[in-house]
């Protein structure tokens, strides 16, 4: 199944870049097949029969949440940057939160989401811990920080990446 997943990703990228006509479809299939044979032993994702359901959950539950958080974070950045006294809004520090997600791609998606949410920037991942730089620390304990920062993403991503 690893081969099918790699082939589909390469083929869809080729078609998106080249446009749809018969020659490009044929050449894209050949090139994707050759690259699949070379690359497939280095990738570690796979697809199974539940893949369409997961894709639907990803598109209709995760992406709206992500875009909404991105807009909120930009409004927060705008409020900080445009305020005349900038130091008043800052209380920065590094905090550590732990995650329940398994797998590299799930952790990458969670870290990217944390980077693009209001006031947080993920710095490093070490095992199950994600180290985060925040503009304004609110919580005192690690559980409180986790509830503030990553709980809503983990709930959706836990469904997508089982």
């Amino acid at each position: 199944m690893k081969y099918v997943a790699t082939f589909l990703v390469l083929f869809v990228s080729y078609i998106a870049l080249a446009g749809i006509n018969v020659q490009e479809l044929l050449l894209g299939a050949i090139v994707s097949a050759i690259l699949t044979v070379i690359l497939a032993k280095h990738v570690n994702y796979t697809i199974d029969y539940r893949f369409p359901v997961k894709l639907l959950v990803f598109i209709f539950a995760y992406l709206p949440l992500f875009v909404w958080q991105l807009v909120l974070s930009n409004l927060a950045v705008a409020r900080i940057v445009l305020s005349p006294r900038i130091k008043k809004h800052l209380n920065p520090g590094f905090v550590k939160i732990s995650t329940d997600l398994k797998g590299d791609f799930a952790k990458l998606t969670l870290a990217n989401s944390i980077t693009l949410t209001p006031g947080t920037l993920s710095v490093d991942i070490d095992g199950n811990d994600i180290y985060i730089h925040t503009v304004y620390i609110k919580g005192e304990t690690p559980e409180e920080n986790r509830k503030n920062i990553s709980a809503k993403f983990e709930k959706v991503l836990g469904v997508v990446f089982k």
Binding site: L70, V71, S73, N74, V77, A78, I80, V81, L82, I86, K87, L90, P92, T115, L116, G119, T120, L121, H133, V135
Partner: peptide
């Protein structure tokens, strides 16, 4: 660009630059 220019230290500059330019 304004966030890159006005923020007081490196990590806050990274935050402002990344978020605003991505959106």
């Amino acid at each position: 660009g304004l966030g890159i220019l006005r923020m007081p230290d490196t990590f806050n500059r990274i935050q402002a630059g990344t978020k605003a330019t991505t959106l």
